[in-house]
């Protein structure tokens, strides 16, 4: 059985596979492709998502990009 770690996604505690990166997290949990991701209060450029592997207790904020006003 693969190892799991606990993270927080939009405030909710969640178990994910160890070694999961931000891009994989987005593919698993965001139905909308047009999202931004903040990891521990830093918004990560999309290009960096595959390089950022999640660590236990990471705080992730995933939010939809919008253009209204």
């Amino acid at each position: 059985m693969s190892e799991k770690i606990d993270i927080y996604l939009n405030g909710d505690r969640l178990q994910v596979a160890a070694g999961l990166d931000l891009q994989q997290l987005q593919q698993q949990f965001a139905t909308d492709q047009q999202v931004a991701i903040a990891l521990n209060t830093e918004i990560m450029p999309r290009r960096c998502w595959p390089e950022r592997v999640l660590q236990a207790r990471d705080q992730v904020l995933m939010f939809n990009l919008v253009a209204g006003g």
Partner: peptide, 14 residues
């Protein structure tokens, strides 16, 4: 654009 605003975004308020 670093935030991700470089592609068409859905809808808007309308």
């Amino acid at each position: 654009e670093c935030l991700g605003h470089q592609q068409p975004l859905p809808g808007g308020c309308l």
